[in-house]
Design a protein around this nucleic acid. Structure first.
Lengths: 408, 408
DNA sequence: CGATCATTCTTAAGGTACTGAACTAAGTTA
DNA sequence: TAACTTAGTTCAGTACCTTAAGAATGATCG
């Protein structure tokens, strides 16, 4: 007997209203009518439905402006939960987040390189069950699992990822396997894409903004969100800013091209440069070494600062490319690498955009560091699930819808 | 008394159906139900409305597949017309196009550098009237004028363009002035953006495709169309592929940045290089000189071929950047420069994408030369009007809607 | 302090768009 | 000619949204 999927009916109106409430944080019904394209009665009934479903709660009253005081509305964070799993070389980072994108629980397990995919899937499922029990969240309120990883993906077949670092996972039907193991719908996506959506969802970014999230973890990528909708492109591989060519005669990249931004200024390059400069590194994985470089820079070691600043110049050019192609008004720096060294990158990127963004006479491009940078990808994975279930979009969500349909 | 705006009601369904008919060329109602998300009865009624409005006509029957033969539908090209005006340094190119994007009339006038904007507006209006009379098109069937030009635009104020080549036009309210002069709604946009939409509209490109049009005229730009909707960004300045940075230490560009693709491989660079190589050029405007280089290459002159091939490498990297950021499945080369030398650029771009496109394991990126390359911008200007009136989109059309609202 | 007004939100009635089910139309197949 | 297949329409019902009017609640002012 199919449990009724909440929020799937009354699609457009529910989704739009909920999204405005989410972005606003706290808002009255009147303001909703102004910010949405709906009339007051429609807002009223939609809000009542949202309240009945428990997704929204009334939280007191606002100031009067000469008449009745408005009733203020907010998301009910505890109404639904989602699980986000980030597969990366360094390990599997998972979070349980509520409706507002706040982390309720987090756990991290060793990398995936050594085990076979089926074992990893079982481990992920077991960890999810354990952690749900630990924080006493009603499993009925968990609406799904988002799984994200770097690299190009073949989403239309519900297969998983193909990056040279994850060879083992090529042709393994991760989504369906995990669905079978855990009994929840599973969505699969790119980590940078997810991080961008997470920033939109949890970072209270305006519905109408045009922004990109530059994600730096063990690699460099970007996610793009336009009018609240993730830009996926024709095969869900949009946003590969790390493979913008910044030097036509540059070094070969693993992707097959030359002079990719990731090779010239990505985390691996930072670590290599630090090594060459004689900095003492533990020689762990890329991110651990990058963290040491960032700490050295934080202590004021000039070599480390110079290396990171050099990297920042390349990141800035990536941001410029994205801004010029997409006419952005916001760039968010996120991911573990920017969590460590964002304060050094931010001014470089901001100044570069101020000086070179093509339409700067028309408007500036704001640059921010995500407040959730370390777990951005995992939170983004949660947001994938939350948005697809609570605020589904018509265009551009093909892949997610396919996955949902197959997983319901 | 307000004349009823056709196609503005019943928005979503009419627009969707009409768009599918346009893309298909010829199609039956049954196929429409398959390709759209509507039921057979809905398609039936919507099609009847379109036929009543004269936008669509029945054109015989298709082959039977074991039952009743399907009635085939087509756009009625003569149902509506639009005017497209392309302002560029070399001159003002205008076309009158029908619903299918076919050129009915075209005219070209000298450049706009020497005259004051009000005079130019009067001349444009007079030319439009003359040419409508000449080809005997009922002015009632002309739904509007699209005006396009290179460079960044301030569309939200209905002002016009700001490029160093068009200083005179800064702060001149082109759209409103022309509306007053001609009595038709006027839309304003970037030339490359328009060219992309023109390619979509007149080039019968599939509704679901993700494509960009690289436009090379006197400069280099791009227009992006996703799911049939123009990507405009936050200020209608998206797609500035000519100002992607391909060399961080490259020469200064007029836009303020360094190493822009346009400077390194744009038409001006081709002309300059040809000059340096000792090719005889008449020294006219950029496009005329570019045409001579292209002809020289066509005759097999090695220096010219080498120069163009060099330019093509930069164009190819632009295409790669767009493809990687947007996950494109199609790149169209258009504009007068590619009309002249596209056959030389195309293989270079195609090979580069085949070798370096990030998601090439997932799908390839097709590269085509527009069949309307010489007048692509002007045809695109027509398409702006046609689409906004006949197949309006909700998201991303902010600027156009503002213009339409003000102009109705 | 009570009458009036402003503002917020809801109820009621009506219109539009879409759908499923049943039907007509027009062919093919045996 | 009868049975079947495919194309397209009619009809009644449903869901959603809107305008118009009303109810609730608080501010303002004589």
């Amino acid at each position: 007997m199919p449990r009724q999927r909440l929020g799937t009916d009354h699609l457009s109106s529910q989704a739009a209203i909920l999204d405005i409430i989410r972005a606003a944080g706290t808002i009255s019904r009147v303001e909703l009518t102004q910010q949405s394209s709906f009339s007051a009665p429609t807002v009223s009934t939609v809000v009542r439905r949202l309240i009945d479903e428990g997704l929204v709660v009334e939280v007191g009253h606002g100031e009067s402006t000469g008449g009745k005081r408005p009733t203020l509305l907010q998301l009910n964070p505890a109404a639904r939960f989602a699980i986000g799993v980030h597969l990366d070389h360094g390990g599997i980072t998972s979070v349980l987040s509520d409706l507002a994108g706040t982390i309720v629980a987090r756990w991290k397990r060793p990398g995936i390189g050594s085990q076979e995919p089926p074992e990893v899937v079982d481990r992920i499922a077991a960890d999810i069950r354990d952690n749900l029990a630990r924080v006493a969240v009603d499993p009925e309120r968990v609406i799904g699992v988002g799984v994200v990883a770097p690299g190009p993906i073949f989403q239309h077949t519900r297969m998983t990822l193909t990056s040279p670092f994850m060879e083992r996972w090529t042709d393994f039907p991760l989504a369906s396997a995990l669905e079978d193991a855990i009994g929840l719908p599973v969505l699969l996506d790119n980590d940078a894409t997810a991080a961008a959506l997470g920033e939109y969802w949890a970072g209270a970014i305006d519905v109408r903004s045009t922004f990109a999230a530059l994600y730096m973890g063990s690699g460099l990528g970007a996610g793009i969100v336009l009018d609240g909708t993730v830009l996926r492109g024709s095969s869900s591989n949009a946003g590969e800013a790390g493979h913008l060519c910044l030097d036509m005669n540059g070094p070969q990249c693993w992707c097959g091209a030359r002079g990719c931004a990731e090779v010239l200024g990505g985390p691996q390059r930072v670590v290599d440069a630090a090594h060459d400069a004689g900095l003492a590194l533990t020689g762990g994985d890329v991110l651990q070494d990058f963290a040491e470089v960032a700490r050295a820079a934080g202590r004021g070691e000039e070599a480390a600062v110079a290396i990171l600043r050099d990297s920042a110049r390349y990141v800035a050019v990536c941001a410029q490319a994205l801004a010029n192609v997409l006419d952005l008004d916001l760039v968010v720096l996120t991911g573990p690498a920017f969590a460590l060294a964002g304060s050094l990158y931010l001014p470089v990127v901001q100044q570069h955009l101020d000086a070179t963004f093509f339409a700067r006479e028309s408007h500036s491009v704001e640059v921010l560091i995500s407040s959730n940078a370390p777990e951005a990808a995992a939170i983004g994975a949660c947001s994938l699930v939350l948005q697809s279930e609570l605020s589904p979009r018509r265009p551009g969500l093909r892949a997610v819808e396919v996955a949902l349909a197959a997983g319901s």
